[in-house]
Amino acid sequence: MELKPISGDPPRPRVVGRVNWRGLWTLYMKEVWRFLNVFAQTLAAPLVTALLFFLIFNLALGRAVETAGGVPYPQFLAPGLIMMTLVQNSFANTSSSILIAKVQGNIVDVLMPPLSATELTVGFAMGGVTRGLMVGVAVLIGLLPFAPVEIHDPIAIVYYAFMASLMLSLLGMIGGIWAEKFDHLAAITNFVITPLSFLSGTFYSIQRLPEEWHIAAFVNPFFYMIDGLRYGFIGHADGSIAVGAVLVLAVNAVLMLWTHRMIATGYKLKA
């Protein structure tokens, strides 16, 4: 066989600019396909659970609690359930993705490529945001036949839905990086995320809580997220929308920096 001299320029390494856009996009798409591959578990199951919750809470409370927040109970409940499902799924997505990658050892596949800590943070977080928002929209559509949905303030809906899914995605990353076993993650889910998403006003107006608990609600970002999203639909809020907007933004900024530090220092990720 005759060898020909190589003609033309030799291949050059790809120049990566300030932001590795292609790498970031690839990581993001990997995160999205990861959950779309098992959509029965990641999209359909949360939808069914949310519909079941809607049904049992209406059947159980329908007679005793006719109105809440100035609207019929089903209309009050729907935004709460959308937010509850959204936060649980955003958290589940990033935490399981990182923990599984750590346990199986393929976390090196995202640590080795030329992706900065910022790009890793954003790529994983946006995957979680995408799942949270997709599930949220699915629950909204699923509830449409049962609860009249009026949109009072679309900006509040989009802002709070995005901020909530981002917050839980970042918390999920922190949890996934910290956890060493699936039990650790299950403990966080069972004892932190589920109680907070249940007790922060998903199913009842916060005014039903005893007086001394109000203060606890007003420093709880979950309360503001549920309240803010609900305001976007029904136009009634228990707390202050502006305070909530600033608080969730501040919490997200802190979590973003924290996650970034964890990845940059390689906490439990790099030897």
Binding site: F57, A60, L61, R63, A64, V65, D183, A186, A187, N190, F191, T194, P195, F198, L199, T202, F203, Y204, R208, L209
Partner: peptide, 29 residues
């Protein structure tokens, strides 16, 4: 051996349901 997940978790979520319903309804009905 997975006591936290196998025993405490289900009991905690059961109690959570009870708490949520009791706040939502007030226990008067």
């Amino acid at each position: 051996r997975f006591g936290l997940e196998a025993l405490v978790g289900p009991v905690a979520s059961g109690m959570l349901f009870l708490l949520v319903f009791s706040i939502a309804i007030g226990g008067t009905q």
